[in-house]
Design a protein around this nucleic acid. Sequence first.
DNA 1: ATCCATGCAAACTTTTTGCACTCGT
DNA 2: ACGAGTGCAAAAAGTTTGCATGGAT
Lengths: 143, 143
Amino acid sequence: MADTKNQKPDYEKMLRKAGVRITRPRRVIVEILSASDDHPDALEIFRRASEIDPSLSLSTVYRTMKLLEGLGAIHRHAFEGGPSRFEQAGGEHHDHLIDLDTGDVIEFKSDRIEHLQNEIAEALGYDIVHHRLELYGRKRKAR
Amino acid sequence: MADTKNQKPDYEKMLRKAGVRITRPRRVIVEILSASDDHPDALEIFRRASEIDPSLSLSTVYRTMKLLEGLGAIHRHAFEGGPSRFEQAGGEHHDHLIDLDTGDVIEFKSDRIEHLQNEIAEALGYDIVHHRLELYGRKRKAR
DNA sequence: ATCCATGCAAACTTTTTGCACTCGT
DNA sequence: ACGAGTGCAAAAAGTTTGCATGGAT
């Protein structure tokens, strides 16, 4: 289960290809993302990045997230009742189970569910652009 | 497909059972909900209700939505990039396909997907409290 | 030397809340 | 008449934006 993990996107290359400038703030943010296995929100990314460069601003984090999202380098998730949380793209597609007690996010995938989704959209006359499947639960206590 | 539609909740009864007061604002809001087949957001409910009682406030709409949600009389959906949208409870469980061009919401259900979700949670050692499955797509053009 | 990107503060959107008053019970 | 519920305005929370300055190319 650990080896389904990402081969991380080469952010610098993507930025260069996009024709935007490789600035210090962008380098720092991208470095934080590379070092992250979790699903931090903008404020958390800001905190982590601030340790490297305290002059960085939250606006820049937001702007950079939007930029990277547009490039397909990261995914944005809007889990319920909280701010957007981000994750590097590059791994294979997966969905999320959110631990209601801890906020932890567990990734999983199911080809069968994906397939059923396509069947459903097909039947309704739609092409799926993307989808969102989130399970909210708690660790099973009872034996 | 039209007959999978809701038998609407009896809001007044639910409010009474909850031991809260049946006020004019609540009556009006609940009347709007009863008359709705779509998935309006708070502001839209406020607009519709304002036609009946112009003195009603948006805060009260929010407060009432929270109350009704707590009673299980309505469901709150946070589709991506927009405000919460509401729907009467009482129909059978279903998921949503959101038309990216129009914002229309199409309801569907799949026992097989539900079942797979439970299997997955089970395998991960979790009990599902609830879940969210949304398909975002556009009407199929190509023949 | 350009002009894209940044920091800062202000604006914005959605939702919640404090407070004095109203009205259901 | 008591106190839950309301309207209003202000506050929160998350995110975006205008503007003057700074830095990558």
